[in-house]
């Protein structure tokens, strides 16, 4: 019977158990992950099982790093996400948070587009750091994502998106995430994607300013267009954008990306 351990095929005897194989292959492992979940007890193995053995505190060898990082993904899921490409239009509060989540789940390729640089007032909600002030957002984000998951290919465009360049720059993506600040830009990308890239799922953020009312933020679908937010709370003088609610909306978007790529999960 054949299973994989740290991404490598290993032959096991039919009566060999999880703990026996772990002791044989990596005796010093103190974390045993079996099919995406930490094993709480010894158990029999089945053909095709995916086992990851980790020793806490040990820096993994380069060849096994990806398997160890993906150990908490459900088998099969990671392979599908790795094939996918997602475009993120705008790298502010929504876009930087969407990018973090999608890099952590191991989306194979991300296309980032933004023309702006990091300024101090971005740090209240956007995934940048003090020392990145002044850098182009796409460059700063790309560098940080590399530290989160080096197996994601990040393609960055320092550009203002327009009806002319959107179909060109974003057409390689399976799913497009709208992550602009200005509502006029949201209208522009919706009109452009729905008419120039018909059938391409587009996930927009609309209404996430202020604080509280977590459960007012929802995802709803209108054909190929998905809308995440409360569709009411406008960012305006007296009601700014704050990290928690922006990240809630951003992760509604990232979660919808997964549902489109993987299909709806059973409860």
């Amino acid at each position: 019977m054949r299973i994989t351990i740290n991404e490598r095929p290993v032959e096991v005897k039919p009566d060999e158990t999880l703990y026996q194989v772990a002791a044989r292959v990596k005796p010093d492992a103190d974390l045993i992950i079996w099919n995406g979940f930490p094993a709480a007890a010894d158990q029999p193995l089945s053909e095709g099982d995916e086992v990851v053995l980790i020793r806490r505190g040990e820096q993994p060898a380069p060849h096994e790093l990806e398997a160890l990082m993906a150990a908490r993904h459900t088998p099969g899921v990671h392979a599908r996400l790795k094939q996918a490409c997602v475009a993120i239009a705008g790298c502010g509060g929504l876009g930087s948070n969407v990018a973090f989540s999608l890099a952590r789940v191991g989306i194979g390729r991300l296309i980032l587009a933004d023309y702006d640089v990091v300024v101090p007032s971005n740090l209240n909600r956007q995934q940048y750091f003090l020392e990145q002030i002044g850098q182009y957002k796409v460059d700063a984000l790309r560098a940080t994502l590399e530290r989160v998951n080096p197996f994601v290919r990040v393609e960055s465009h320092r550009v203002e998106l327009t009806p002319e360049n959107i179909p060109v720059l974003l057409s390689g993506a399976d799913v497009i995430v709208e992550a602009f600040d200005r509502a006029e830009m949201k209208v522009l990308i919706i009109e452009t994607v729905l008419t120039r890239l018909p059938g391409r799922p587009l996930i927009v953020g609309s209404g996430m300013a202020g604080y509280g009312r977590s459960n007012a933020i929802q995802t709803r679908r209108e054909g190929d267009l998905y809308i995440c937010g409360d569709e009411v709370s406008e960012a305006r003088p007296g009601r700014g954008l704050m990290a928690p609610r922006v990240a809630i909306a951003a992760n509604h978007q990232a979660n919808q990306v997964l549902e489109i790529l993987l299909g709806e999960e059973q409860p």
Binding site: G93, K186, V187, I190, S206, G207, E231, V232, E234
Partner: peptide, 9 residues
Amino acid sequence: LVLHLIAGG
């Protein structure tokens, strides 16, 4: 369908 887009992101 009339969809109002809300500023912020």
